[in-house]
Amino acid sequence: MVYLDNAASTAISPEAVAAMTRAWEQPGNPMSLHGAGRHARRILEESREAIARALGARPSEVVFTSGGTESDNLALKGIYRARRAQDDRRRRIVISAVEHHAVLDPAQYLVDNEAAELVVLPVDERGRVDPADVRAELAGHAGQVALISVMWANNEVGTLQPISEIAALGREFDVPVHSNAIAAVGHVPVDFTASGLSAMSVAAHKFGGPQGAGVLVIGRDVACRPLLNGGGHERDLRSGTQDVVGAAGMAAALETAVDRFDENTAAVAALRDRLVGALQSRDGVTVNSRDDGLPGIVHVSFDGCEGDSLLMLLDAKGIEASTGSACTSGVASASHVLLAMGMDRASARGSLRFSLSHHNTAEEIDYVVSVLDEVCERARAAGLTGVF
C-alpha cells in the first residue's frame, strides 16, 4: 500500500501515541479539585503551553475544540454574532473563493439564517487572493464588514495566501481577520502573533496528531460568542469537559513536527520533485500545484480522464490518493477550488491530489509512476461519465 493522501489525515506519530497513553493512565476531570483532577489539569495546561509555543501564540489565546470544522465554525459564527451585536450594520462576511467547506458552509448558514451578506473574493490562476481586492472591499465597506476569513494554505492545490498582508489590512480598517491554517500548520512556518491575525484554526490530524482534536487560536481582545453554553470552559468560548488525551497528543505531535520541520520538509520536497518531474514528461498531464506552495501537495489533471475512475484504478494498484478534500469526496462534481482558479469543468473533474509525507519513500513514488500510464489508459477508455 502506498498512502498518498496525507492532506486528508496523517499517520499518528509515536510521540503523540506515547503522550496519549500517559494521559490515559489516570482518570480525572481537569475541572475537579482533587488529585486526579489536578493531574489532568496539569496535562491540559502543559499541552496548551506547548501548542502556544509552537504556533507563536500565548497560552491564553489557545482554545481547545474537537477539530478544524468546529474551530472554523466558532470563529465565523462567534465573531460575526459578537460584531453584529456591537453594531448591527456589520453583516458582511468576506471570504475567498477557494475556502474549505468548513468556512464556506457556516458563512452560507449565516447568510441564510442570520441576515449576513457574503462577499467572495476572486483568486488568480494559482488560487491566490489579491490583497488589493481586500483593500477595495474594506475601503468601500469597512463599517459593514463583520470579519474576513482567508485560508493560510489551500488543502487541494497547496497555494499559500498573503496572510500577513491581509491581516495588516484588517488591522488598518479595524476588522478581525481569521485564517483556516489547518493545511499549513506543521508543513510551512506558522506564527500567529507575527501574522497579525485575530483568529486561526488548527487541526491535530494534519501533522501527526489524533483525529478529533484541534484549537482555535484567538486574540484575547477579539469579541466572539460561544457556540455551546455550559460550564464556561475555555474562556467561556467552548463549554464542555476538555479532551485531555487529545490535547496531549496534539501538543506532542505539533512539537515533533516543528522540531523536525527542516528535515521533514527537505525529504517531502525531494519526493515531490521526483513525482512532478516524472509527471511533466507525460502527454496529457498538467501539474497544477507549484513548488512555492505546500511542499507535500502534487495536484494533477489528466486529459480525458474521470477523477473517480483514476482514484479507483489506483486504489486497485494499492495506491491511495484523492480527488480533493476528504470532506467532499464521493460527490461527483467539479471542485469549486479548481473552477475558481479558471479551470474548465472537464479538467477539474479529471484531477487528482497526491499528498506526500516524510513517511513516503522514493521507491513508492517510482511505483506510482510505473503504473500511471496503464491507469490513465484504462481511465480514458472508460471515458468521462458526464460533466456536471
Score class of each variant (00 low, 15 high):
P59G: 05
E15N: 09
M1N: 06
A340K: 10
A251R: 13
D259N: 15
S179Q: 01
T10L: 11
A19W: 02
E49K: 10
A204K: 13
L384T: 00
D72R: 06
E263S: 09
Y80G: 06
R290Y: 13
A184M: 11
R81E: 12
V103P: 01
A16V: 02
D373C: 06
A168N: 08
V369E: 08
V120M: 08
A75K: 15
S13K: 13
K206Q: 10
E15L: 14
R126H: 10
N180Q: 05
P162M: 07
N73C: 11
A278F: 10
D133I: 05
G140Q: 15
V94H: 04
A102Q: 03
G196I: 00
F192Q: 02
R84P: 01
F192N: 00
L227Q: 10
S13C: 10
D174R: 14
I12W: 11
Y3V: 02
L118R: 06
V123M: 05
E165I: 06
R48E: 05
E61V: 03
A142Y: 13
V120A: 05
N73G: 12
T10P: 15
V298A: 08
E374C: 04
L310C: 03
P59H: 09
G78Y: 15
V150A: 04
P27C: 11
A278L: 14
E364A: 05
A7F: 15
P176E: 01
P176N: 12
G214E: 04
L104K: 03
V103I: 02
T323V: 15
S322I: 00
R92A: 05
G67L: 13
V185F: 13
S325K: 05
E263D: 08
L4Q: 02
A204L: 12
D130Q: 02
V217D: 09
S301G: 04
D221L: 07
A381S: 01
A223E: 14
I166T: 02
Y109K: 10
D133G: 05
L352S: 07
A52G: 04
